[in-house]
């Protein structure tokens, strides 16, 4: 049983609201007294993943479990899935449409950024079924 658990339903039709869940997680972690570096690693990774979920998958769910040693996140969507995960991991590779680029995302940095900021990243994806991303950030101090 974790110290603290959070659950979010991420709407897929409103890009302006993307990031609300990540912002809320940040506020909770701050209140719980986690150090700023750990909080930043968690929320940057989660924010990129949340944006991905809105851009590519029509929304989904986010579950966060908070422990003194680590923060785990699980993002589940029922979007189109990722055909080639290793290709999606390459910096600069993107399938985002132009309208997403105009919003400041879709540069092919999402998954590489998530990997950089987390201690573990597991992607399970099936084309036509959806994607599950599991992330873990270890507490630094």
């Amino acid at each position: 049983m974790s110290l603290f658990e959070l659950h979010y339903e991420v709407p897929g039709d409103d890009f302006t609201r993307a990031g609300e869940a990540s912002g809320d997680v940040k506020a909770h972690l701050k209140k719980l007294g986690f150090d700023p570096a750990t909080i930043r690693n968690v929320v940057i990774a989660l924010y990129e993943a949340e944006i991905n979920m809105v851009i590519h998958a029509g929304g989904g769910t986010i579950d966060v479990s908070v422990d003194p040693e680590c923060i785990k996140m699980e993002l589940i969507d029922h979007g189109p899935g990722i055909a080639d995960i290793s290709l999606a991991m390459q910096e600069g590779y993107s399938t985002a449409p132009d309208n997403v680029r105009a919003l400041g995302f879709g540069a092919g940095m999402g998954l590489p950024n998530i990997k950089k900021y987390t201690d573990e990243m597991i992607i399970e994806s099936e084309v036509g079924v959806g994607t599950v991303i599991k992330l873990r950030v270890d507490v630094k101090e």
Binding site: G23, K26, L103, G104
Partner: peptide, 17 residues
Amino acid sequence: LSGLMNPQVVRTAEMMD
């Protein structure tokens, strides 16, 4: 510094402190 004009600019700044 940005020329982009949508709420994600503020959210990005928020995540980065």
